[in-house]
Design a protein around this nucleic acid. Structure first.
Lengths: 143, 143
DNA sequence: ATAGTAATAGTAATCATTACTATTAAGGAT
DNA sequence: ATCCTTAATAGTAATGATTACTATTACTAT
């Protein structure tokens, strides 16, 4: 519902990229889900609205959105990536059993980066923190 | 040279796994490098000692070593994984330009996990922290 | 409305990783 | 030390997520 496409339109125009139905729908689909869907899941989410969309278009669009900072690509142990429409700094918890990715409601550690940056000559632009464990559902299933 | 294969031998025997030349050499190669090599890099590292080793054996061995907690698999944005023979808890810094992975000499945040665990029902077994940025070499090259 | 060209749909190619299979070699029993 | 069982290996084929290719479509500046 709160689909401020203005942000997307501004970012795309600044790069000379065109605004297409596919791009708008993919970004909004991503923003309206609490899950962290894979490319294929997004493909299936938008198919009702764009029946003949191609999986390649989904990948290309996700790449463009990532480049523009409109989404976060999540790469964990599995064989595929997940995508997060929430670009505010936050952490994730990955279930080692079912692969589910949850948002972590913890304050972001802002002071970490400077500490390491100076002595190593490594210029830090950000950090990623992920918790590994077992989600409530998977814990229950085991008992 | 400080190759305490005892650890590997004990861990493998406990699982009924056999001790092979390939497994010993792969683990020692991994422990004697400060880099975080890919499977193919490890394959090339051990080839002088085992000329007809198969890449499949490298993958299978790395999988077994990971299962036994004798190495850490590093999965970042790239299309391939890296392997770290140092299983002591520590963090990494990934160069966004060249893909190099460096060890971070910072104390591990031990208090993080309990904070999140209780209210979510998520049972945490560990966490991973990675810094993103540009390494010294890549910063230099740009100026 | 038109022209120029980026983006798309459909499909083929890529490439890291995994699976398969005949052969080899650990390692326990004799 | 030799034999036997079977796990592990080498070599190769298959898998599957992602990327590349190409003719066609549809944005957007004029």
């Amino acid at each position: 519902m709160s689909t401020n496409n203005d942000e997307l339109i501004t970012a795309f125009k600044a790069k000379g990229y065109r605004i297409t139905k596919q791009r708008l729908i993919i970004l909004n689909a991503l923003r309206n889900t609490a899950t962290h869907p894979t490319a294929e899941e997004i493909y299936n989410m938008v198919k009702p609205q764009i029946p003949n969309i191609s999986l390649g278009t989904v990948y290309r669009t996700l790449g463009a959105l990532e480049e523009l900072g409109l989404l976060q690509k999540l790469v964990y142990g599995g064989s595929f990536s997940r995508y997060d429409g929430n670009v505010n700094a936050h952490y994730h918890a990955v279930c080692l059993d079912c692969g589910k990715v949850l948002d972590v409601d913890e304050p972001v550690l802002s002071n970490l980066e400077e500490r390491f940056s100076s002595e190593t000559g490594f210029t830090i632009v950000g950090h990623k923190l992920e918790f590994h464990g077992y989600c409530k559902d998977c814990c229950k299933r085991k008992n």
